[in-house]
């Protein structure tokens, strides 16, 4: 029985992350019906780096983030051309296992969204889904994940309390812990601190700097100071186009494209 469950879990690790490039996006076009939201986007996201995506609302950055674990599949009329390779696999190939993809590519949203259950059950949710039942094993995953999300000390005595009673910052770190419990190789973060106070924001930024040692992080942010603080490289999107993608210091001190310059200096239009 144990062996069978273990097999379920192992079958989800179908990606090969030995290469330096964690995500390779080639000539990506994405349409919502007749509207083209992404235009010929090509970029390589390096392993163990934080990549920030910036740009005005509606520029396509969140859309691109969602394509990385195929969350756009659920959107009616969404059509994709081009390719996205993650861990050497074409994630839009017909035979791709979506559970495996989402186990490896975790997502944290703008608004903390803990499940209406205990702290423990939130974190144990993914491992249980992947077939882990043994209490000792789950305990270990919950503790490790909460520790990695820098929230163990705050929650270790409240594991059985409802997650909905936590503060916004704690809820968001719990959501990060919940994602980490699936042992993803890539973590997608869609404006993860925009609803948080500066102290909670600082904790999450610090946490990201720790996590990136073991995984690859892609963050969409409207906070440019946040991008300068945490991102190794930053991509600027405008009207569905990847305008510029460079190391963060270069992009924020000496952008190559006038549109980037105008956007980041607040002189847009």
């Amino acid at each position: 029985m144990k062996d069978k469950k273990q097999t379920v879990k192992d079958n989800l690790d179908i990606f090969d992350f030995t290469s330096d490039i964690a995500v390779n996006i080639k000539s990506l076009n994405l349409y919502y019906g007749n509207f083209q939201a992404l235009k010929e986007v090509s970029m390589e996201l390096k392993k163990n780096e934080i990549t920030a995506m910036i740009g005005p609302s509606g520029c396509g950055k969140s859309t691109l983030l969602k394509t990385l674990n195929r969350m756009n599949d659920l959107v009616d009329g969404c059509r994709i051309e081009g390719s996205i390779t993650i861990g050497e696999k074409d994630i839009y190939a017909k035979d791709i296992d979506l559970s495996a993809l989402r186990k490896n590519v975790g997502m944290v949203f703008q608004k903390p969204n803990p499940f209406p259950m205990s702290v423990y059950d939130n974190v144990a949710f993914a491992p249980r889904t992947f077939g882990i039942r043994k209490k000792a094993e789950l305990d270990e995953i919950v503790e490790t994940s909460l520790k990695r999300a820098s929230i163990w000390d705050e929650l270790k005595d409240r594991l059985n309390k409802s997650a909905l009673g936590l503060s916004g910052g704690q809820q968001q770190r719990l959501c990060i812990a919940r994602s980490l419990a699936a042992q993803p190789k890539i973590l997608l973060m869609d404006e993860p601190t925009s609803a948080l106070d500066p102290i909670s924001t600082g904790k999450i930024e610090e946490l990201m700097s720790e996590l990136v040692k073991d995984l690859t992080i892609v963050i969409v942010t409207h906070n440019m100071q946040q991008a300068t603080r945490i991102a190794d490289r930053t991509a600027f999107f405008y009207l569905g186009e990847l305008v510029e993608f460079a190391d963060t210091q270069t992009l924020f001190t000496c952008p190559a494209d006038k549109r980037t310059e105008n956007y980041i200096t607040g002189r847009f239009g």
Partner: peptide
Amino acid sequence: EHPVASDFR
């Protein structure tokens, strides 16, 4: 103002 790009320079 947290200037960036040419403003920062």
